[in-house]
């Protein structure tokens, strides 16, 4: 795995080859994903314990949540994940404008997700449901808001990538940033898949 060539010094000083830079960025992002797994994992552990301890509270809490909104949001995120995956393939094949379009689709999905979440939250507050209501809703708000934070960060990352892409920074020989940004976005999707199951479905 060690570098075999020292000829291509990047202006940053030390990236040995574009291949190494690419695989390093990806490995870095995967490590970060491992971190995120354990970050949300803490919440999953809390969920598991209190779900087992207070099953009724969780059944009642779930009844307050809108399955329709939850399912819609799940599909929205799956579609966004799909479109950014398509985007990566597109830039790998040199379709720069297609990538821009697909990122816009992804960002729109993200925004739509956020709007839905906003309506969900305000409906809860309207019904007098707050994080302090009970442990289920504390978990609901903690999990979904932390996830929402990731959605926003992901959107920011993809937005920056889109700008750079429009400036023509990416090509079939340089698509590290779109791929790594997409990785992060998929993570957001995967976490939601579990949150959806845990919060909206399980009863």
């Amino acid at each position: 795995m060690a570098a075999t060539s020292v000829e291509h010094l990047h202006s940053d000083g030390h990236f040995v080859t574009p291949q190494d830079k690419y695989s390093s960025m990806k490995l870095g992002m995967w490590l970060f994903i491992a971190t995120e797994i354990l970050l949300f994992g803490g919440l999953f552990a809390v969920y598991a314990i209190y779900r087992a301890k207070f099953p009724e509270m969780f059944f009642n809490g779930r009844d307050e949540l809108s399955l329709l909104l939850g399912t819609t949001n799940t599909v929205i995120l799956i579609v966004s994940s799909f479109s950014i995956a398509m985007g990566v393939t597109a830039i790998q094949r040199g379709k720069k404008n297609l990538l821009t379009f697909l990122i816009i689709v992804t960002l729109l999905c993200g925004a739509l997700f956020g709007v839905n979440k906003y309506f969900e939250y305000t409906a809860k507050f309207h019904h007098g449901i707050f994080p302090s209501t009970d442990i289920f809703f504390a978990l609901y708000f903690m999990m979904t808001s932390l996830h929402m934070l990731h959605v926003i960060v992901g959107m920011a990352i993809l937005f920056i990538i889109m700008i750079f892409n429009m400036k023509g920074k990416y090509s079939p020989s340089n698509y590290t940033a779109p791929e790594v940004g997409a990785l992060y976005w998929h993570l957001v999707d995967v976490i939601w898949i579990y949150l959806f199951g845990l919060l909206y479905l399980v009863a």
Binding site: M1, A2, A3, T4, V16, D20, S24, L31
Partner: peptide, 10 residues
Amino acid sequence: IVTIHKLRAP
């Protein structure tokens, strides 16, 4: 971690 994986001298 990434440094140790990727940047070791030949």
